[in-house]
């Protein structure tokens, strides 16, 4: 969400020079400072410290500090409302976690969810972005409507889709009944349907950000190349493969990687839709860790879960990004 917006903002404000973050960094590199820039670069004067401090202090105290504290908690037996002092217990939490099948079930569901949401989100958003970059009538209207899900509180998105999925008063079952597909079902409480139903909501909720980021990326596509390829008789698919995709690829990689992280860490949507049910079928790792920490008060253990989540997700992402970048070089 964040990066995409930032890019969009800087894009709309950019008068030539500042267009898109990723693109700009690559193209113009280190030419920000002019003239005496090199001399100014290394030494930051007192004025600059004065400008930085108001933001730096809160970041250190309320973000970096807690993060380190959180990691250290993973090696303790910290619990909520305990009277005896917290003690270091080394790797005990991680050992327990290794044998905690419930956690690994949850982790597996988290991965299924994150991939299941991120991939369709990307494909659908790419389609929408390509459409919105065409010279269609009512494009402005479509652009405004398409980002509405972005503005909604996640809790409201959850509530909305609960109304859609509602077995009796919901529009989904009613439509199925009208089309003659039987009586429909209770989507969110069915063992087999809960996770897919929740994934659809995840895709829906994340489409605007992805679309905006890709639409931004499409502005990097050289128009002349496109026209030249068309003159040469390249079909739409060829043009997409050879002209659009190479220019779009950096942004596509960045946004899918970010989406994957955001989706894996998502909480509110599923909390409202199913609260992890039925029988833990939609219990994402975040829900699991939340319950462990704030229902059962196992702070140390929950922190260990957090650490394992970050570590494994980082490894997966690294593999994904390295693989993709390699693939690009070979082609």
């Amino acid at each position: 969400m964040t990066l995409a917006t930032a890019s969009e903002r800087s894009g709309s404000s950019g008068s030539g020079g500042g267009r898109w973050w990723w693109g700009r960094r690559r193209r113009t590199g280190d030419d920000g400072d002019k003239g005496g820039g090199a001399a100014r670069a290394r030494v930051m004067d007192h004025g600059a410290w004065f400008l930085v401090l108001p933001a730096l202090l809160p970041i250190l105290v309320l973000s970096v500090g807690p993060l380190l504290y959180g990691i250290s908690l993973a090696f303790t037996d910290s619990q909520s409302g305990r009277t005896e002092p917290t003690e270091w217990i080394g790797l005990l939490n991680f050992q327990d976690l290794l044998h905690d099948t419930l956690f690994w079930d949850s982790f597996r569901i988290g991965l299924l969810w994150a991939v299941g949401v991120t991939v369709p989100q990307f494909v659908l958003a790419l389609g929408l972005a390509l459409l919105l970059s065409q010279n269609l009538r009512f494009r402005w209207l479509a652009r405004s409507l398409a980002i509405i899900p972005w503005a909604m509180p996640e809790v409201v998105v959850g509530i909305m889709w609960r109304l859609v999925y509602n077995p009796d008063a919901g529009i989904l079952n009613e439509t199925l009944r009208d089309l003659g597909f039987g009586d429909g079902r209770d989507w969110l409480t069915g063992i087999g349907t809960a996770l897919p139903a929740v994934i659809v909501v995840g895709v829906w909720a994340g489409m605007p950000q992805t679309t905006v980021a890709l639409l931004a990326g499409l502005q990097n596509v050289p128009r002349e190349l496109h026209e030249a390829a068309e003159m040469d008789g390249a079909g739409a698919w060829r043009r997409f493969r050879t002209v659009t995709w190479p220019a779009l690829k950096p942004i596509a990689l960045a946004i899918t990687a970010l989406n994957f992280i955001w989706n894996f860490n998502s909480f509110a949507l599923v909390y409202v839709l199913t609260n992890g049910g039925p029988g833990g079928r939609t219990r994402l790792p975040m829900l699991f860790a939340y319950e462990e920490a704030f229902r059962y008060g196992q702070f140390g253990y929950a922190a260990a879960m957090g650490c394992v989540m970050v570590a494994l997700i980082s490894v997966l992402l690294a593999v994904y990004l390295v693989g993709r970048l390699r693939g690009g070089d070979q082609r």
């Binding site: 970096v64 807690p66 504290y69 992280i261 909480f267 975040m286 704030f294 929950a302």
Partner: peptide
């Protein structure tokens, strides 16, 4: 930090913040 902070799972930050 701006980039990395996007990847924190909230649990890891919220427990210490809570304390």
């Amino acid at each position: 930090w701006v980039v990395v902070s996007q990847a924190f799972p909230f649990v890891l930050v919220i427990i210490p913040l809570f304390l």
